[in-house]
Write a protein that binds this DNA or RNA. Sequence first.
DNA 1: CCAGTTTGATGAACGGCGTTCACCATACCT
DNA 2: AGGTATGGTGAACGCCGTTCATCAAACTGG
Lengths: 251, 251
Amino acid sequence: MSQDALPPTPWEKSRRRPAAARVPLTRDRIVDAAFTVLDREGLDGLSMRQVAAELTVAVSALYAHVSAKDELLELMYHRLFDGFELPAPDPEHWQDQIRDYARAGRARLLEHRDMARISMAHAPFTADLLPKLEQLLAIFRTAGLPDRISAVAGDVLSTYLDGFALEEGVWADRLRESDEDGTESWKRQRAEMQAYLAALPTDRFPHLVALSGRMAEETQDERFELGLEIIVRGLASYLDDTGPGRSRDGS
Amino acid sequence: MSQDALPPTPWEKSRRRPAAARVPLTRDRIVDAAFTVLDREGLDGLSMRQVAAELTVAVSALYAHVSAKDELLELMYHRLFDGFELPAPDPEHWQDQIRDYARAGRARLLEHRDMARISMAHAPFTADLLPKLEQLLAIFRTAGLPDRISAVAGDVLSTYLDGFALEEGVWADRLRESDEDGTESWKRQRAEMQAYLAALPTDRFPHLVALSGRMAEETQDERFELGLEIIVRGLASYLDDTGPGRSRDGS
DNA sequence: CCAGTTTGATGAACGGCGTTCACCATACCT
DNA sequence: AGGTATGGTGAACGCCGTTCATCAAACTGG
């Protein structure tokens, strides 16, 4: 685009336009920078000033593109759903479709630090998110779930998603505090927790001791799948609610 | 305790000890004041300075009893469980016990404004909360749930609790913003939302339109119960896992 | 009864925050 | 070439969490 530009001769330096070829500020660039800061500092360290610094720009410049920090957080929240497509409802495989939705959602939430906290703070009822909700409801309803169940199923699922990812975030934070990185200290931490739980007085905490292994497993994946399965099974139980005929059912 | 004290005569006013019979500051008094501020201002308006003002005390005085705001929030979180007793596990009625637990938990979360947000921020793994967790696990395990399920059941349940209460809080906030109070405007707001959903273009949002009535019901109680039921059913499905008619699922 | 110590509140200060606003440099239009 | 819109600047306001030197009252031992 631009020809090779020689560095400006010293004597014309003062006349040179300082902000010549600066990349213009846009909402997208701001959101990108916000994610950079978020991943580096966490949500508590995400300030308008830090974002501005990341862009080497004055704080007040941000407010030309973003009305307030709340709006910035909302834009970040919307990134969660960018290019997040649900499949056309297939009544034969609705359970797998739900599972895939949940797994993809969890993956997205874990992509950025503290993302679950941001997600929690925003109700998914803004206009441009309604299509996603519609697609989710489509899967439930065409699967044959009663309407009264479909109307809450999304809530149950998404609170589980957010809540689980939030807990994972707490773990990740605790890991970050201890200087070391890599999977080594992760394993060590889980082992420590497991040892702590296992060492509880057996008479007062028999069940915690018994489950200590499962509560502090090396990876959270299996726990996530199990919790997800509980919900899917609960939903599925409403299919044959009125016998094998699978009738749609009112209140 | 104290005899009737006459008001000090004016001329001795200057000699009078100003801080004589002042109630001493305690952690409990601070937490109480924090809840007062919380209910009045919401979590975003809950600042150390406001709490101090509520007690007509200098901000720095708080730090003699509470190491930081984080600790204060933790103390508030612990109030959630004060006198919160779970029954001895009864395998015959484990489902009702779980339901009661969830209902009581929701009620507690709704007692104070933004309480769900505070609850979300704290993992229930601090030492003094382990007994509660133990009691919950006791119910699951003595009911006969497999260990791998019991180990996540608490998570599923409590994320649903917190998440649902959080959403209710968002509604309550929106209601607070509109000046009016009482149940009148509540109804009106729900009606508005329902109308909005019902008025969506039917071709693009058939399911949302169809469920508009159920998504914006006058009270959230029924929705809560339904979501709770999904989870309870999901859990129950693991009881007769190896029984007749159901597909068994190992791993 | 007094001196000394401990206790616990005070108020000023520091640095950081979100947000606003008067100003100003550049880029475009006529 | 001059005028104007666009969009960034920097200082300021008021609030925040937290710290610290100061100080008054309350207990203590002699």
